[in-house]
Design a protein around this nucleic acid. Sequence first.
DNA 1: TATCCGGTTTCCAGCGCTGTAAACGCTGCG
DNA 2: CGCAGCGTTTACAGCGCTGGAAACCGGATA
Lengths: 331, 331
Amino acid sequence: MARLAGVSAKTVSNVVNDYVHVRPATRLKVQDAIELLGYRPNVVARNLKNGRSGVIALAVPELDAPYFAELAHHVVQAAMERGWTVLVDETGQIQDGAVRARERSVVAGIREHLIDGVILNPLALDDADVERYGSVPLVLLGERLGSRLADHVAIDNEAAAAAATRHLVGTGRRRIAVVGAQPPPFGHSARLRLRGYRDALVEAGIRYDPALVVPVLDWRRQPGHDAVATLLALPEPPDAVFCFNDLLALGVLRGLADASLRVPEDVAVVGFDDIEESRFSVPSLTTVSPDKRAIARHAVEHLARRLEPGTWTPEEVRVGWTLEVRGSTGG
Amino acid sequence: MARLAGVSAKTVSNVVNDYVHVRPATRLKVQDAIELLGYRPNVVARNLKNGRSGVIALAVPELDAPYFAELAHHVVQAAMERGWTVLVDETGQIQDGAVRARERSVVAGIREHLIDGVILNPLALDDADVERYGSVPLVLLGERLGSRLADHVAIDNEAAAAAATRHLVGTGRRRIAVVGAQPPPFGHSARLRLRGYRDALVEAGIRYDPALVVPVLDWRRQPGHDAVATLLALPEPPDAVFCFNDLLALGVLRGLADASLRVPEDVAVVGFDDIEESRFSVPSLTTVSPDKRAIARHAVEHLARRLEPGTWTPEEVRVGWTLEVRGSTGG
DNA sequence: TATCCGGTTTCCAGCGCTGTAAACGCTGCG
DNA sequence: CGCAGCGTTTACAGCGCTGGAAACCGGATA
């Protein structure tokens, strides 16, 4: 390459990198040679030199869960604006015993030195894991952890869940069930949402009835669907269901339809996540809508800040949310 | 690192790579040092040496479209089994003028030398682009192109569309509309599906009525929803709708519900893709179900084959599909 | 004309790893 | 006792690139 242009490799490098002191004639010569040979600089070698790859990783439990797919979309977009490429990793579902191991390998950097940083939505990881295995700049999504080694981006789950519950109370519901509770060590989000729900009940002077709390590990449509049977078998079935994510809620909608119950007349349903699907379900779903774009933007931004030289202190970022009132609660 | 263990870097390399001729004692010494230092081999440097990165790229139009999200999920899984990591790129929607440019950059290798190969689901790319810009092993999803530089993995769109149409005819429908037609140069899939539809009509002795063909560029829920108004405004509205993907169909379901039409009693609906959502819609959606797992597996497998030394000839892979009959056609 | 000077280019080294060839050290045979 | 032969380890070079320093070059200055 350099030979064809009759210059040294360094000069080629200078041209490619827009170094100022290159005589126009030389630059042209080099550019011609580049064109002629279809030469492309080898990014890998460049990375080896400067220790940066321009690739960040996004690790989510499952790409085929709409919430994560939508989030991934926004992260890819935000990263593109910075000239970064996103490498996507799946860490697996909550029931899968290997989740934690995979999450550890993610905070350890996946393919070491190949990625500049990681955005991780953890399910099973704990603080100790991060301290122990962490070796790349890390941004955690969700409120699970308190690590001092990572930034955190999340919404206020408790407040959002309370708002959703309050909304149901406001439409006159009294027996409000919950679908999606999870036992420790999993489900930090689930616990926060449950707490918000209880707080709102107390606030409204409604007794908290554990029978109305349906535990579900796997937050997908089918388990949501199945939860309906459990709830309808109660001596006093609920008049509303607050689901800890939209997929559960969509399963519940379907289950209620199968049981010939009308939504929202007989039972109101609220979800969490505001995936696109929820705007088009029949009936459309009232749901908590986290600002996903903001989550993605902040995550990428904090990763960027972390990569810049200088001191860095971990930050907690609280992102906004809204309650989208739609057909499933009579909106 | 090597110093701590008191051996040369090469010996460390040998240990890490499980080279046979390393004395057990030496191996232990090195492993201790590795453990102690938390040493991780630098993949980038290794790649520089052997020209492989173990990373493949998957490029799809939009990650937040469920079909692509599910496909991505399967590709990530299939790649993991081979020890590969997947880098995900979004090329954008069909209306976006930049799609073609982005697809070109994908076949050119995205970050040159960083990825070993590409699996691309093209929208706007043409053969000439591949010939001209192609510079990495490439597997194309869908039947758009005939390039001799890439493997192709696809289902028989025409046959599947014909089967879907035949099914509607079989349930007694006569005015079968189509939602999702696309004009050239876009929508090769759309054209194949339209052809299958026409063939099936002809076969059943039903006249092809262009008024029943609704063109839609953007195959998502909202445009599907909007198409309902167009169809209901016809002098003779349809008694069935064949949508070219599930999102359109879900939008149509919603639109019909809004118009107080019953599905399937008044209008039957069929989709294409069999995304998970379609199993839980109300009513559940009859749809063409391409074997996504097989698509992913074949794509990864062919990329692998391509990377092996030896001669390679492009292959056309036809993957299976089924028609899932559900509630929206009275199943 | 000699010197200086700033712009331009090349030289050199090294990022961390591994293939190759050569060196080393031990065993066992002649 | 010497050396072949084998198993083990090291030295060296180079993958393609870039930072830094040195070298080069032509014109301005003394």
